[in-house]
Nucleic acid binder design. Structure first.
Lengths: 189, 189
DNA sequence: GGATACATGTGACAAATGTCAAAAACGAGT
DNA sequence: ACTCGTTTTTGACATTTGTCACATGTATCC
């Protein structure tokens, strides 16, 4: 995700430095330790996070109370509970730290205010959403069209960092399979 | 999807009627019969379609050559192979008519030109994408978190028109299950 | 550096869903 | 209203993946 997004950031800076500066001066930084909750489930999400270092997981609860992971955020990734961020309804999705993170955060208000004020900023957000959408679309394909083994191969090929840096417990939840199944797939590949 | 999108259209018209008019005067209309291909797989998608009447399916091919449906387009829905529309790479996704359609189409060039020219139009596209994203997000939840039966119940509740208006063959592909399984689920519910 | 908690691996078995083949039902076109 | 082609239903069986229980391995914190 990063490269495309960085390109959009660069473009914003070039097209309207004023907007870019306002965006960054409105940002605050922070950090969270492993296991801490960045975005609670059922809360209204009012921030957009840029992960500077570390890893977070985004997840939901199934009907039976178990969790399933929807995406991971690594360095330079943008993270928010987008649906809640947009609708301002309580989020079904939460975010929790897997590996200590440092982040930069910008409030939703600032985002929307700047988007209304600067055309270039609106363009930036549209491009950001395009990237978000493409990511979700890729994931849809991956979940719907592949078997457990194929999913693992797909991740090996397209997101090797997931395999290198994530605990199997989290990875299996993301793949939509059990830990045992993942363990068995790994044994033979 | 329609209601939210119509609200965005209204807003556009109010905020900048000139932009709204340019958008509509650049649009062309057309129609397609059942079985015809609106967006071929592997083509570069350069149009945004608004379905005026009828139904289309959007689909991909799995590795084994079978198809899986990613979404349906009904009256007032916007349809495009978004990933290809954005990246201008050949589309993995295609669109085919399930029930004769009438559509309005706008070229990608016009969309991006108007978005660059009018801030209000850029806002409209951002909002459109937000809706697209939320739809994809809902689908992700639905595919990852639910069993075959739960998926069917979910659709009964949230998209009853899918059950009323779509052949089971297409619906099962959308649900990510076989026709046989769908037929059995229906038998007991 | 040992105790304790947490993560991963393995086996036996169960459940859900898929596959294949055939029959029944439905529908469009004449 | 009949025919041909498509869609849906049904049954028997295969496969994939999940569940549960427990063993093994690894990390963390005093």
């Amino acid at each position: 995700m990063q490269e495309l997004l960085n390109a959009s950031f660069e473009k914003l800076k070039t097209k309207n430095e004023q907007a870019f500066n306002e965006f960054y001066s409105a940002a605050e930084t922070g950090s969270c330790k492993k296991g801490e909750v960045l975005i609670p489930v059922n809360s209204i999400c009012r921030k957009l996070y840029i992960i500077e270092s570390g890893i977070i997981k985004q997840f939901r609860y199934k009907e039976d109370g178990s969790e399933h992971i929807t995406w991971f955020g690594f360095e330079d990734d943008l993270v928010t509970a987008y649906t809640s961020f947009v609708t301002q309804k309580p989020s079904l999705e939460g975010a929790e730290v897997i590996e200590d993170i440092k982040y930069t955060a910008i409030s939703r208000d600032t985002c929307y205010t700047l988007a209304a004020k600067y055309h270039a900023m609106e363009t930036f957000f549209r491009e950001m959403l395009e990237i978000y959408y493409i990511t979700a679309d890729e994931r849809l394909f991956f979940l719907q069209a592949l078997t457990a083994k194929q999913k693992y191969s797909y991740i090996q090929k397209h997101h090797p960092e997931f395999i290198q840096r994530l605990p199997q417990k989290e990875l299996s939840s993301f793949l939509g399979i059990t830990r045992e199944t993942l363990s068995r797939i790994r044994k033979y590949s």
